[in-house]
């Protein structure tokens, strides 16, 4: 198995606080890699470092063999790494169709063309229609995003992220805030992501983690506490300890 994404000795300090403490992490091609840990373990900070929302204090991020530590967020997207956010980040004035068409046209490098019409370009149309069909958004594609229920908005965010054709997809708590009734549909979507896309999943819900993950990394206090396949992690006493709220070993 080849490695698509790697974090090498990643450190992030805020003032005196070390939020990410010498984290090493590898993502294999096609993996469903869950990142778990108690609140405040530094999961989102770690994803922000990977995607360029934050700059690391030390260490590097390597994507498909290329050091991307100093690239901008948008350049990382262009190189195949896309993400969703813990709280929905969407374009309030757009429809799902417009949002997906935007990401598609950016993927094709059309964003700098001021006189093209979106509906004239077969590549934009194909790409957009493909995403809408794959994520079954055709019945809501013309509704203003702001008017959709939260679960649907979540789907739109995942779909539009996927429209960038990433080979690494980072999902930051995709099920957070989604009501029980809409949850199933969302999880089916996550399960149906193509196998060649490597997924990093941050999640609190252990049912979801053990349903999807092929590999699990446990973060506690900004450090990697344990890493392994789901069965190993489930047996690990240190992980149980961390989740039971006892003072995790500071070793």
């Amino acid at each position: 198995m080849s490695i698509v994404l790697e974090a090498r000795d990643l450190v992030k300090q805020f003032g005196g606080i070390t939020a990410t403490d010498h984290v090493n992490f590898t993502l294999e091609k096609g993996a469903r890699h869950a990142l778990i840990g108690p609140n405040g373990a530094g999961k989102t900070t770690f994803v922000n470092l990977l995607t360029g929302v934050l700059q690391p204090t030390a260490g590097s991020v390597v994507l498909n063999g290329e050091d991307i530590s100093h690239l901008s967020r948008e350049a990382r997207v262009k190189r195949g790494m896309a993400r969703t956010f813990q709280i929905n980040q969407l374009f309030a004035s757009m429809t799902p169709l417009e949002m997906i068409a935007l990401v598609t046209s950016e993927r094709l490098g059309y964003g700098t063309r001021p006189f093209n019409a979106l509906d004239h370009d077969p590549l934009v149309l194909d790409g957009t229609a493909d995403i809408i069909a794959r994520f079954r958004l055709d019945d809501i594609m013309d509704a203003p995003i702001a008017s959709l229920p939260y679960g649907k908005q979540r789907q739109v965010e995942i779909a539009s992220t996927f429209a960038a054709h990433p080979n690494v997809l980072l999902l930051d708590e995709p099920a957070a805030g989604v009501p029980e009734a809409e949850r199933r549909e969302l999880l089916d979507i996550v399960a149906a992501l193509p196998p060649d896309v490597s997924v990093v999943l941050i999640e609190h819900d252990m049912d979801i983690v053990f349903r999807f993950a092929t590999r699990i990394t446990v973060l506690v206090n900004g450090r990697v506490l344990a890493e392994g396949d789901p069965a190993t992690i489930a047996r690990d006493p240190r992980v149980k300890e961390a989740y039971l709220g006892e003072e995790a070993s500071h070793a």
Binding site: T51, V53, S72, R73, E74, V77, K78, A82, R83, F85, Q89, L90, F91, A92, S93, M94, E98, M99, A101, L102, V103, S105, E106, R107, Y110, G111, T112, R113, P114, F115, N116, A117, L118, V124, S160, T161, A164
Partner: peptide, 26 residues
């Protein structure tokens, strides 16, 4: 013409949500 082009759409993306815009490759 400009505001209805991919370029124009990307401007609206930035206006609506700059974090998501850059995470969409803009």
């Amino acid at each position: 013409r400009l505001v209805h082009s991919p370029f124009g759409l990307s401007l609206r993306a930035i206006r609506d949500n700059v974090l998501r815009a850059s995470a969409s490759g803009v």
